[in-house]
Amino acid sequence: MFFEGYHYHGSGTTFEQSYRCYPASFIDKPQIESGDKIIMPPSALDRLASLHIDYPMLFELRNAGSERVSHCGVLEFIAEEGMIYMPYWMMQNLLLQEGDIVRVRNVTLPKGTYVKLQPHTTDFLDISNPKAILETALRNYSCLTTGDSIMVPYNNKKYFIDIVETKPANGISIIETDCEVDFAPPLDYKEPERPAVPATAAKALAKAEEVEAEPEPKFNPFTGSGRRLDGRPLSYEPPPSAASSSSSSSKDKQPAVSNGNGQSSGSEKAATARQAQGKLVFGGNANRAPKEAPKAGAGKETKKEEEEKKEESKFQAFSGKKYSLRG
């Protein structure tokens, strides 16, 4: 189809044409570097006006050699016929050189609901209010495409930001829409390294872990020895516990103190006399039964004493005799 002497492709509702592309430095329009709008020839405007297309005008840019695709808007129709001017960062995204052929086709993009951005450098995060700067810069953009790297100028410096993800499609319109924006960590971001632990601190930490790992001493109930209220000896002697064997064995196995004549002392006789009268006496010697002093010259135990020891070693529950406190 020819329109005013220039051949155009596409159906009655579609605009599609190939142009040679050049950067903005070839024309006195430096402002197009801060957005995503291109400059097209006047014949393109005449063709678009005859079509029933949606406004604002959005276009798909395709590099057939590298199969790279991006989207853009249009700023003016003042370029020479057969040529278009575009931002240099857009040519870099499409892998285009000066004078290369690019295919231009009008499209309708859905309004964006979500976009994820990733700055190239951490310098962008050092700006006092990067969110406000980004909102101001995106006013010059009409659409965003997943995989593109847009340029945001601020304070005589250019910041490049990757479009990591867009929803609901790979190409979205951001004109008069509320879009949720998320940031990924910058490309040159490195997590801070953890400081090395000094050797002394590591040893102290290991020692603390060893102390915590030591088992706590177990509680053994009812490990004491039993005693009768009337002061008489038990019919059996319970085995001492492991915890108190070292301390109680030495006290329980001490021989009775006797005088030179082989008889018990006067205090033991007095305790025995009080117990015989039926009185309950508390004291160091009151709980001990009187022991007979060993007879002089007795080197061997009698048969009767051996039988008594055998009987004491056998435990029989509730086999003792009952006694009255009144005697």
Rank of each mutant, 00 (worst) to 15 (best):
E210N: 11
S70W: 15
F77D: 04
P233T: 15
K116Y: 15
K29H: 14
L94D: 04
M83W: 07
D148R: 01
Q254K: 15
A201H: 04
E308Q: 07
L325Y: 03
K158N: 15
S173I: 01
C21W: 02
S246H: 05
T272A: 09
K322Q: 10
E268G: 12
K111N: 12
L48R: 07
E80G: 03
R227L: 07
K116N: 05
E33S: 03
N259M: 04
M83P: 02
A208I: 00
L117D: 02
A206S: 06
E212D: 15
A271C: 12
K253Q: 07
E135A: 09
K251F: 10
T108Q: 08
S245M: 10
P221L: 00
A317Q: 05
D28N: 13
F183P: 00
A270M: 06
I133Y: 11
L138R: 11
K190E: 14
C21R: 07
L94C: 01
G327Q: 02
T200W: 08
K251G: 06
R228E: 11
L234N: 15
P87K: 02
V211I: 06
D162L: 12
A202C: 03
T121E: 08
N155D: 13
Y88D: 06
G231I: 01
D252C: 13
G35L: 01
D28Y: 05
K190W: 12
K37A: 14
V69A: 00
M57C: 05
G283R: 07
V164M: 04
A243M: 05
S245D: 08
E210R: 13
E214I: 14
I172H: 01
E76T: 10
L96G: 00
D54R: 13
K291C: 14
E307I: 12
I32L: 11
L45K: 03
R68L: 13
E33I: 02
Q277C: 10
R139A: 02
K29N: 12
G10V: 02
E33R: 10
Q31R: 11
V281P: 04
G297K: 08
S142L: 09
G278I: 09
L187G: 04
Y8C: 03
L45C: 05
G231R: 01
P130D: 06
K131I: 14
S66W: 06
V69Y: 06
I174N: 07
G147M: 01
T145Y: 07
I127M: 13
G224N: 12
A169N: 07
A79K: 03
P290G: 07
D188A: 08
E191G: 02
K310N: 08
Y55M: 10
M86R: 10
F124E: 00
I38G: 02
D123L: 11
C21L: 06
D36M: 03
R20Y: 02
N156G: 09
W89H: 13
E311P: 00
K167T: 02
E292A: 09
G266R: 15
S235A: 05
E165T: 13
K37N: 14
Q17A: 09
G297R: 03
I150R: 09
V102Q: 13
P42H: 13
A44S: 11
S249A: 08
L75W: 12
S225N: 14
E268H: 11
